[in-house]
Amino acid sequence: MIKIDDLELLGKGGHKHVYQHPSYANRVIKVMIRKRATESGARADQSALRANQQQGIYRQYRRELIQYLQLCKNDYKDCNFMFPVEAVHGFEPTDQGLGLTTEKIISPTGKPLTVDRMVRDGLFDEKARVAFNRFFDDCCDYHVVFGEVNTGGIMYTESRQDRPEFVLVDGIGEKVIIPFRSMSKTINSRNIRKVEDKLKRQLKKLDDSISF
């Protein structure tokens, strides 16, 4: 069992923390925040009916895993495992609950870098602009289903496929009961474009000089 206190904390979210994997430099472990769960593993911040639906506190893991499997299924012929979302490697037992092990996305500096941080730090240049636009195009082409996507969950790298690219690491997978976006690529692409417009407006507020 992995002891979380022995790991390097890489990031904090509203529902989970992200740590460096102790054995693999190119992987991270996501762990749900314990105070967000009840003793039975249900979501502490939801009604009793919703909190115990399906996998409870691990429902986010389920959405991401199903989405990654679906993408791999769709590209089965080409044996492609690389998409605009982080790759899922499996699960790890930790002393703070089950951990989800995923691909680590790093910037050219060797550190994680989100698109909003790039804009704040004045790093959003022409190659980043091209990569950001391509990210949404690729999400439409691959039929990537968004959950709740924000600028803090989209990370920049140049080493993953030897080119500048953005990768979604949070907000992955269908959240609604009737999965319209999963069933229809057209409906899903329409939603992706709406999210694209929203996020670009948010980034423009951080730096009005950037263009897309």
Score class of each variant (00 low, 15 high):
L100F: 04
H89T: 08
V145E: 05
Q54E: 14
L168W: 01
Y156W: 07
L100N: 01
K104F: 09
R63I: 04
G122L: 00
Y156P: 05
D78G: 12
T151N: 09
Y142K: 11
Q96T: 15
N80M: 09
L113E: 01
M155L: 12
V31L: 07
M118N: 00
V130S: 03
D137H: 06
N52I: 13
A44D: 07
R117M: 15
P112M: 12
S40Y: 15
E165K: 06
I57C: 04
R62T: 09
E86D: 13
A48L: 13
C140Y: 01
R120W: 00
Q96G: 12
G171A: 06
D141G: 03
R129K: 11
F91W: 10
T114W: 07
L49F: 14
L98E: 08
I172S: 03
D137Y: 09
K104H: 11
R117Q: 15
L123F: 03
G110H: 05
I172E: 07
G90T: 04
N150S: 10
V167P: 05
D162T: 14
E165Q: 12
T114N: 10
V169E: 07
D162G: 14
R117N: 13
E126T: 15
F83D: 01
D162K: 14
T151Q: 06
R134K: 13
P84A: 00
F136M: 02
C79G: 13
Q70D: 12
S107V: 02
N150Y: 10
D138K: 12
S107E: 06
P164F: 03
H143T: 00
H143R: 00
E86C: 12
F135V: 04
N52C: 14
F146D: 05
C79E: 15
Q67Y: 09
L69W: 15
D116C: 09
E158Y: 13
M82R: 10
E39W: 15
L168A: 06
A48K: 14
E126R: 10
V144Q: 02
N74A: 14
Q70A: 11
Q67P: 04
V88Q: 03
G56P: 08
S107I: 00
Q96I: 13
